[in-house]
Write a protein that binds this DNA or RNA. Sequence first.
DNA 1: GTACAAAACTAACGGTTATTAGTTTAAAAT
DNA 2: ATTTTAAACTAATAACCGTTAGTTTTGTAC
Lengths: 182, 182
Amino acid sequence: MDVAARLFRKKGFVATSMQDISSQLAIKPASLYNHIHSKQDILQSLLLSKAQKFIEGMQEITKSSLNPLEKLQKVISLHVRLTIEHTDEISLMVGEWRHLELDSKEQYVKARNNYDRSFRKILKACVRDGYLKDLPVGVMLFSILSTLRHLYSWYDRHRSISSIELEKQLYQSLVAGLLKER
Amino acid sequence: MDVAARLFRKKGFVATSMQDISSQLAIKPASLYNHIHSKQDILQSLLLSKAQKFIEGMQEITKSSLNPLEKLQKVISLHVRLTIEHTDEISLMVGEWRHLELDSKEQYVKARNNYDRSFRKILKACVRDGYLKDLPVGVMLFSILSTLRHLYSWYDRHRSISSIELEKQLYQSLVAGLLKER
DNA sequence: GTACAAAACTAACGGTTATTAGTTTAAAAT
DNA sequence: ATTTTAAACTAATAACCGTTAGTTTTGTAC
Protein backbone atom coordinates (compact mmCIF):
# COMPACT_ATOMS: atom_id res chain seq x y z
CA MET A 1 0.00 0.00 0.00
CA ASP A 2 2.82 2.38 0.80
CA VAL A 3 4.52 1.76 -2.50
CA ALA A 4 1.25 2.23 -4.35
CA ALA A 5 0.53 5.45 -2.50
CA ARG A 6 3.92 6.84 -3.38
CA LEU A 7 3.56 5.91 -7.05
CA PHE A 8 -0.03 7.12 -7.30
CA ARG A 9 1.10 10.40 -5.90
CA LYS A 10 4.07 10.71 -8.22
CA LYS A 11 2.52 9.54 -11.49
CA GLY A 12 -1.19 9.61 -10.80
CA PHE A 13 -3.51 6.64 -10.34
CA VAL A 14 -4.30 6.01 -13.98
CA ALA A 15 -0.72 6.44 -15.16
CA THR A 16 0.54 4.00 -12.56
CA SER A 17 0.46 0.42 -13.81
CA MET A 18 0.39 -2.77 -11.79
CA GLN A 19 3.75 -3.39 -13.43
CA ASP A 20 5.05 -0.18 -11.85
CA ILE A 21 3.91 -1.24 -8.41
CA SER A 22 5.07 -4.83 -8.66
CA SER A 23 8.50 -3.99 -10.01
CA GLN A 24 9.16 -1.74 -7.02
CA LEU A 25 8.36 -4.74 -4.84
CA ALA A 26 10.53 -7.00 -6.99
CA ILE A 27 7.70 -9.36 -7.84
CA LYS A 28 5.58 -10.03 -10.92
CA PRO A 29 2.37 -8.09 -11.55
CA ALA A 30 0.17 -11.14 -11.21
CA SER A 31 1.56 -11.84 -7.75
CA LEU A 32 -0.04 -8.67 -6.48
CA TYR A 33 -3.41 -10.36 -6.72
CA ASN A 34 -2.53 -12.68 -3.86
CA HIS A 35 -2.78 -9.61 -1.65
CA ILE A 36 -5.33 -7.33 -3.23
CA HIS A 37 -8.50 -7.74 -5.21
CA SER A 38 -7.98 -5.03 -7.82
CA LYS A 39 -6.15 -1.81 -8.58
CA GLN A 40 -9.28 0.07 -7.74
CA ASP A 41 -9.29 -1.61 -4.34
CA ILE A 42 -5.91 -0.15 -3.53
CA LEU A 43 -7.15 3.36 -4.18
CA GLN A 44 -10.29 2.75 -2.17
CA SER A 45 -8.40 1.46 0.86
CA LEU A 46 -5.94 4.31 0.75
CA LEU A 47 -8.54 7.04 0.41
CA LEU A 48 -11.36 5.79 2.59
CA SER A 49 -9.11 4.90 5.50
CA LYS A 50 -7.62 8.38 5.61
CA ALA A 51 -10.96 10.07 5.06
CA GLN A 52 -12.13 8.15 8.10
CA LYS A 53 -9.30 9.62 10.15
CA PHE A 54 -10.42 13.12 9.25
CA ILE A 55 -14.02 12.34 10.09
CA GLU A 56 -13.05 10.85 13.43
CA GLY A 57 -10.78 13.75 14.27
CA MET A 58 -13.50 16.23 13.41
CA GLN A 59 -16.08 14.35 15.45
CA GLU A 60 -13.88 14.40 18.49
CA ILE A 61 -13.36 18.13 18.14
CA THR A 62 -17.01 18.86 17.47
CA LYS A 63 -18.31 17.10 20.54
CA SER A 64 -15.65 18.53 22.81
CA SER A 65 -16.49 21.36 25.16
CA LEU A 66 -13.90 23.77 23.77
CA ASN A 67 -14.88 27.20 22.57
CA PRO A 68 -15.18 27.69 18.80
CA LEU A 69 -11.80 29.36 18.43
CA GLU A 70 -10.08 26.56 20.29
CA LYS A 71 -11.90 24.11 18.06
CA LEU A 72 -10.59 25.91 15.01
CA GLN A 73 -7.12 25.60 16.43
CA LYS A 74 -7.64 21.88 16.96
CA VAL A 75 -8.76 21.43 13.35
CA ILE A 76 -5.57 23.05 12.12
CA SER A 77 -3.66 20.75 14.41
CA LEU A 78 -5.54 17.76 13.01
CA HIS A 79 -4.59 18.66 9.44
CA VAL A 80 -0.96 19.18 10.37
CA ARG A 81 -0.73 15.87 12.20
CA LEU A 82 -2.39 13.80 9.48
CA THR A 83 -0.41 15.55 6.75
CA ILE A 84 2.87 14.76 8.46
CA GLU A 85 1.90 11.18 9.26
CA HIS A 86 0.35 10.28 5.91
CA THR A 87 1.78 12.70 3.37
CA ASP A 88 1.35 10.54 0.29
CA GLU A 89 -2.17 9.39 1.04
CA ILE A 90 -3.31 12.92 1.84
CA SER A 91 -2.06 14.08 -1.54
CA LEU A 92 -4.23 11.40 -3.15
CA MET A 93 -7.26 12.75 -1.30
CA VAL A 94 -6.84 15.98 -3.20
CA GLY A 95 -5.89 14.76 -6.64
CA GLU A 96 -7.03 11.21 -7.23
CA TRP A 97 -10.39 10.79 -5.54
CA ARG A 98 -12.19 11.28 -8.84
CA HIS A 99 -10.87 7.92 -10.00
CA LEU A 100 -12.85 6.17 -7.33
CA GLU A 101 -15.78 4.22 -8.70
CA LEU A 102 -19.43 3.84 -7.80
CA ASP A 103 -20.09 3.32 -4.11
CA SER A 104 -16.66 4.23 -2.87
CA LYS A 105 -16.75 7.52 -4.78
CA GLU A 106 -20.15 8.37 -3.41
CA GLN A 107 -19.02 7.44 0.06
CA TYR A 108 -15.91 9.57 -0.23
CA VAL A 109 -17.73 12.64 -1.51
CA LYS A 110 -20.32 12.29 1.20
CA ALA A 111 -17.62 12.11 3.86
CA ARG A 112 -15.89 15.18 2.48
CA ASN A 113 -19.09 17.21 2.31
CA ASN A 114 -19.85 16.20 5.83
CA TYR A 115 -16.40 17.32 6.91
CA ASP A 116 -16.72 20.66 5.15
CA ARG A 117 -20.06 21.26 6.82
CA SER A 118 -18.58 20.68 10.25
CA PHE A 119 -15.73 23.02 9.45
CA ARG A 120 -18.14 25.70 8.33
CA LYS A 121 -20.15 25.34 11.52
CA ILE A 122 -17.06 25.97 13.62
CA LEU A 123 -16.20 29.07 11.61
CA LYS A 124 -19.73 30.40 11.89
CA ALA A 125 -19.67 29.82 15.62
CA CYS A 126 -16.42 31.77 15.81
CA VAL A 127 -18.10 34.69 14.10
CA ARG A 128 -21.30 34.38 16.11
CA ASP A 129 -19.47 34.38 19.43
CA GLY A 130 -17.39 37.37 18.42
CA TYR A 131 -14.03 35.66 18.07
CA LEU A 132 -13.66 36.43 14.38
CA LYS A 133 -14.51 39.47 12.32
CA ASP A 134 -17.89 39.39 10.66
CA LEU A 135 -16.76 38.59 7.12
CA PRO A 136 -18.53 36.37 4.57
CA VAL A 137 -17.74 32.87 5.78
CA GLY A 138 -17.68 31.28 2.32
CA VAL A 139 -14.40 32.63 1.02
CA MET A 140 -12.92 32.49 4.51
CA LEU A 141 -13.65 28.76 4.70
CA PHE A 142 -12.35 28.15 1.21
CA SER A 143 -9.14 30.00 1.90
CA ILE A 144 -8.36 28.17 5.14
CA LEU A 145 -9.42 24.80 3.81
CA SER A 146 -7.51 24.99 0.56
CA THR A 147 -4.37 25.93 2.46
CA LEU A 148 -4.77 23.04 4.89
CA ARG A 149 -5.67 20.56 2.15
CA HIS A 150 -2.58 21.29 0.10
CA LEU A 151 -0.26 21.50 3.03
CA TYR A 152 1.39 18.25 1.94
CA SER A 153 3.10 19.97 -0.96
CA TRP A 154 4.57 22.63 1.28
CA TYR A 155 5.54 20.12 3.93
CA ASP A 156 7.45 18.10 1.36
CA ARG A 157 9.80 21.00 0.83
CA HIS A 158 10.15 21.79 4.55
CA ARG A 159 10.24 18.43 6.26
CA SER A 160 12.49 19.70 9.01
CA ILE A 161 9.86 21.93 10.59
CA SER A 162 8.22 20.73 13.81
CA SER A 163 4.48 20.19 13.83
CA ILE A 164 4.09 22.68 16.66
CA GLU A 165 5.95 25.39 14.79
CA LEU A 166 3.94 24.65 11.64
CA GLU A 167 0.66 24.87 13.52
CA LYS A 168 1.68 28.17 15.00
CA GLN A 169 2.62 29.70 11.69
CA LEU A 170 -0.56 28.48 10.05
CA TYR A 171 -2.63 29.93 12.84
CA GLN A 172 -0.80 33.22 12.41
CA SER A 173 -1.35 33.32 8.65
CA LEU A 174 -4.87 31.93 8.48
CA VAL A 175 -6.65 32.90 11.67
CA ALA A 176 -4.85 35.57 13.64
CA GLY A 177 -5.55 38.15 10.93
CA LEU A 178 -9.25 37.48 11.18
CA LEU A 179 -9.42 37.92 14.95
CA LYS A 180 -11.64 40.64 16.27
CA GLU A 181 -9.87 43.01 18.59
CA ARG A 182 -11.61 42.81 21.93
CA MET B 1 -8.70 22.61 -27.41
CA ASP B 2 -11.69 23.71 -25.35
CA VAL B 3 -13.25 20.27 -25.49
CA ALA B 4 -9.95 18.68 -24.53
CA ALA B 5 -9.48 21.09 -21.65
CA ARG B 6 -12.91 20.31 -20.30
CA LEU B 7 -12.38 16.56 -20.56
CA PHE B 8 -8.86 16.67 -19.14
CA ARG B 9 -10.21 18.55 -16.21
CA LYS B 10 -13.14 16.22 -15.64
CA LYS B 11 -11.41 12.85 -16.14
CA GLY B 12 -7.72 13.69 -16.01
CA PHE B 13 -5.26 13.76 -18.90
CA VAL B 14 -4.32 10.08 -18.84
CA ALA B 15 -7.87 8.84 -18.39
CA THR B 16 -9.08 10.94 -21.31
CA SER B 17 -8.76 9.10 -24.62
CA MET B 18 -8.58 10.53 -28.09
CA GLN B 19 -11.86 8.68 -28.59
CA ASP B 20 -13.39 10.74 -25.77
CA ILE B 21 -12.29 13.97 -27.36
CA SER B 22 -13.23 13.08 -30.93
CA SER B 23 -16.66 11.77 -30.04
CA GLN B 24 -17.53 15.07 -28.39
CA LEU B 25 -16.62 16.72 -31.68
CA ALA B 26 -18.59 14.13 -33.65
CA ILE B 27 -15.59 13.00 -35.67
CA LYS B 28 -13.35 9.93 -35.66
CA PRO B 29 -10.24 9.78 -33.45
CA ALA B 30 -7.87 9.65 -36.41
CA SER B 31 -9.33 12.87 -37.77
CA LEU B 32 -7.96 14.75 -34.80
CA TYR B 33 -4.49 14.36 -36.23
CA ASN B 34 -5.30 16.72 -39.07
CA HIS B 35 -5.32 19.44 -36.43
CA ILE B 36 -2.85 18.38 -33.77
CA HIS B 37 0.39 16.51 -33.65
CA SER B 38 -0.21 14.39 -30.58
CA LYS B 39 -2.21 14.13 -27.39
CA GLN B 40 0.79 15.42 -25.53
CA ASP B 41 0.79 18.47 -27.76
CA ILE B 42 -2.71 19.37 -26.64
CA LEU B 43 -1.65 19.39 -23.02
CA GLN B 44 1.46 21.40 -23.82
CA SER B 45 -0.45 24.06 -25.71
CA LEU B 46 -3.06 24.35 -23.01
CA LEU B 47 -0.61 24.60 -20.15
CA LEU B 48 2.19 26.65 -21.64
CA SER B 49 -0.11 29.26 -23.14
CA LYS B 50 -1.80 29.91 -19.79
CA ALA B 51 1.46 29.82 -17.89
CA GLN B 52 2.62 32.51 -20.28
CA LYS B 53 -0.34 34.66 -19.32
CA PHE B 54 0.60 34.44 -15.67
CA ILE B 55 4.22 35.29 -16.44
CA GLU B 56 3.21 38.27 -18.54
CA GLY B 57 0.77 39.50 -15.93
CA MET B 58 3.38 39.20 -13.22
CA GLN B 59 5.99 41.01 -15.32
CA GLU B 60 3.67 43.92 -15.92
CA ILE B 61 2.97 44.20 -12.20
CA THR B 62 6.61 43.84 -11.22
CA LYS B 63 7.89 46.60 -13.44
CA SER B 64 5.07 48.97 -12.55
CA SER B 65 5.69 51.81 -10.13
CA LEU B 66 3.03 50.74 -7.64
CA ASN B 67 3.88 50.22 -4.00
CA PRO B 68 4.29 46.60 -2.83
CA LEU B 69 0.84 46.38 -1.28
CA GLU B 70 -0.80 47.63 -4.44
CA LYS B 71 1.22 45.10 -6.37
CA LEU B 72 -0.07 42.35 -4.12
CA GLN B 73 -3.57 43.52 -4.83
CA LYS B 74 -2.88 43.42 -8.55
CA VAL B 75 -1.61 39.85 -8.31
CA ILE B 76 -4.83 38.77 -6.64
CA SER B 77 -6.71 40.54 -9.37
CA LEU B 78 -4.63 38.72 -11.99
CA HIS B 79 -5.50 35.34 -10.52
CA VAL B 80 -9.18 36.17 -10.33
CA ARG B 81 -9.30 37.39 -13.92
CA LEU B 82 -7.45 34.42 -15.39
CA THR B 83 -9.40 31.96 -13.27
CA ILE B 84 -12.70 33.35 -14.51
CA GLU B 85 -11.59 33.57 -18.13
CA HIS B 86 -9.85 30.19 -18.36
CA THR B 87 -11.31 28.06 -15.58
CA ASP B 88 -10.67 24.66 -17.15
CA GLU B 89 -7.12 25.36 -18.24
CA ILE B 90 -6.20 26.80 -14.86
CA SER B 91 -7.39 23.64 -13.19
CA LEU B 92 -5.03 21.68 -15.45
CA MET B 93 -2.15 23.87 -14.31
CA VAL B 94 -2.67 22.54 -10.82
CA GLY B 95 -3.46 18.91 -11.45
CA GLU B 96 -2.09 17.76 -14.80
CA TRP B 97 1.22 19.50 -15.33
CA ARG B 98 3.10 16.41 -14.17
CA HIS B 99 2.00 14.62 -17.35
CA LEU B 100 3.99 17.03 -19.44
CA GLU B 101 7.07 15.45 -20.98
CA LEU B 102 10.71 16.42 -21.34
CA ASP B 103 11.26 20.00 -22.46
CA SER B 104 7.74 21.22 -21.95
CA LYS B 105 7.73 19.93 -18.39
CA GLU B 106 11.04 21.57 -17.64
CA GLN B 107 9.84 24.78 -19.22
CA TYR B 108 6.63 24.72 -17.22
CA VAL B 109 8.33 24.08 -13.89
CA LYS B 110 10.83 26.80 -14.61
CA ALA B 111 8.07 29.27 -15.39
CA ARG B 112 6.23 28.38 -12.20
CA ASN B 113 9.31 28.72 -10.04
CA ASN B 114 10.00 32.05 -11.62
CA TYR B 115 6.46 33.15 -10.87
CA ASP B 116 6.68 32.01 -7.26
CA ARG B 117 9.92 33.91 -6.83
CA SER B 118 8.35 37.12 -8.07
CA PHE B 119 5.41 36.61 -5.77
CA ARG B 120 7.72 36.09 -2.81
CA LYS B 121 9.63 39.26 -3.64
CA ILE B 122 6.44 41.29 -3.52
CA LEU B 123 5.50 39.83 -0.18
CA LYS B 124 8.94 40.49 1.21
CA ALA B 125 8.77 44.06 0.02
CA CYS B 126 5.42 44.43 1.74
CA VAL B 127 7.00 43.34 4.99
CA ARG B 128 10.14 45.41 4.47
CA ASP B 129 8.19 48.59 3.80
CA GLY B 130 6.00 48.03 6.83
CA TYR B 131 2.74 47.24 5.06
CA LEU B 132 2.47 43.72 6.46
CA LYS B 133 3.24 42.25 9.84
CA ASP B 134 6.69 40.78 10.20
CA LEU B 135 5.72 37.10 9.98
CA PRO B 136 7.71 34.29 8.32
CA VAL B 137 7.07 34.83 4.63
CA GLY B 138 7.21 31.14 3.69
CA VAL B 139 3.92 29.95 5.11
CA MET B 140 2.32 33.30 4.28
CA LEU B 141 3.23 32.87 0.61
CA PHE B 142 2.09 29.27 0.58
CA SER B 143 -1.24 30.11 2.15
CA ILE B 144 -2.04 32.94 -0.24
CA LEU B 145 -0.77 31.09 -3.28
CA SER B 146 -2.58 27.85 -2.60
CA THR B 147 -5.82 29.73 -2.14
CA LEU B 148 -5.37 31.63 -5.39
CA ARG B 149 -4.26 28.54 -7.32
CA HIS B 150 -7.29 26.53 -6.36
CA LEU B 151 -9.73 29.34 -6.78
CA TYR B 152 -11.18 27.63 -9.86
CA SER B 153 -12.86 24.99 -7.72
CA TRP B 154 -14.54 27.59 -5.57
CA TYR B 155 -15.49 29.73 -8.54
CA ASP B 156 -17.20 26.74 -10.14
CA ARG B 157 -19.67 26.61 -7.30
CA HIS B 158 -20.19 30.40 -7.19
CA ARG B 159 -20.19 31.50 -10.81
CA SER B 160 -22.61 34.31 -10.13
CA ILE B 161 -20.14 36.38 -8.11
CA SER B 162 -18.57 39.41 -9.79
CA SER B 163 -14.82 39.51 -10.17
CA ILE B 164 -14.64 42.74 -8.20
CA GLU B 165 -16.57 41.28 -5.28
CA LEU B 166 -14.42 38.15 -5.36
CA GLU B 167 -11.22 40.19 -5.35
CA LYS B 168 -12.47 42.20 -2.40
CA GLN B 169 -13.33 39.14 -0.35
CA LEU B 170 -10.03 37.46 -1.13
CA TYR B 171 -8.16 40.57 -0.12
CA GLN B 172 -10.12 40.61 3.13
CA SER B 173 -9.42 36.97 3.90
CA LEU B 174 -5.84 36.74 2.70
CA VAL B 175 -4.24 40.12 3.16
CA ALA B 176 -6.25 42.44 5.38
CA GLY B 177 -5.59 40.28 8.41
CA LEU B 178 -1.86 40.57 7.87
CA LEU B 179 -1.86 44.35 7.62
CA LYS B 180 0.16 46.24 10.15
CA GLU B 181 -1.81 48.87 11.95
CA ARG B 182 -0.20 52.20 11.23
C1' DG C 1 9.84 -35.38 7.52
C1' DT C 2 5.29 -34.43 6.22
C1' DA C 3 1.21 -31.62 5.65
C1' DC C 4 -0.61 -27.23 4.89
C1' DA C 5 -0.89 -22.53 3.69
C1' DA C 6 0.89 -18.38 1.72
C1' DA C 7 2.79 -16.26 -1.95
C1' DA C 8 5.46 -16.44 -5.74
C1' DC C 9 5.59 -17.88 -10.70
C1' DT C 10 4.31 -18.54 -16.15
C1' DA C 11 1.18 -17.98 -19.70
C1' DA C 12 -2.54 -16.18 -21.61
C1' DC C 13 -6.90 -13.40 -22.13
C1' DG C 14 -9.69 -9.64 -24.13
C1' DG C 15 -9.72 -4.90 -24.35
C1' DT C 16 -8.02 -0.31 -25.04
C1' DT C 17 -4.60 2.94 -26.30
C1' DA C 18 -2.28 6.54 -29.39
C1' DT C 19 -0.84 6.84 -33.72
C1' DT C 20 0.13 5.95 -38.98
C1' DA C 21 -0.85 5.33 -43.84
C1' DG C 22 -3.61 5.68 -47.50
C1' DT C 23 -8.09 7.19 -49.42
C1' DT C 24 -12.24 9.85 -50.07
C1' DT C 25 -15.14 13.76 -49.44
C1' DA C 26 -16.00 18.64 -48.97
C1' DA C 27 -14.85 23.41 -49.45
C1' DA C 28 -12.38 27.17 -51.53
C1' DA C 29 -9.79 29.42 -55.08
C1' DT C 30 -8.71 30.11 -59.66
C1' DA D 1 -15.51 24.02 -64.59
C1' DT D 2 -11.11 22.79 -62.82
C1' DT D 3 -7.54 22.71 -59.58
C1' DT D 4 -6.00 22.91 -54.95
C1' DT D 5 -6.39 22.47 -50.14
C1' DA D 6 -8.32 21.10 -45.90
C1' DA D 7 -10.36 17.79 -43.25
C1' DA D 8 -12.91 13.94 -42.87
C1' DC D 9 -12.80 8.80 -43.47
C1' DT D 10 -11.32 3.41 -43.07
C1' DA D 11 -8.13 0.13 -41.73
C1' DA D 12 -4.38 -1.42 -39.41
C1' DT D 13 -0.50 -1.44 -36.16
C1' DA D 14 2.22 -2.36 -32.09
C1' DA D 15 2.24 -1.65 -27.35
C1' DC D 16 0.37 -1.89 -23.01
C1' DC D 17 -3.31 -2.54 -19.70
C1' DG D 18 -5.64 -5.14 -15.66
C1' DT D 19 -6.85 -9.53 -14.59
C1' DT D 20 -7.48 -14.83 -14.46
C1' DA D 21 -6.12 -19.67 -14.30
C1' DG D 22 -3.18 -23.03 -13.25
C1' DT D 23 1.35 -24.33 -11.35
C1' DT D 24 5.47 -24.17 -8.59
C1' DT D 25 8.14 -22.50 -4.90
C1' DT D 26 8.73 -21.04 -0.17
C1' DG D 27 7.97 -20.94 4.61
C1' DT D 28 5.65 -22.68 8.88
C1' DA D 29 3.40 -26.04 12.13
C1' DC D 30 2.93 -30.46 13.66
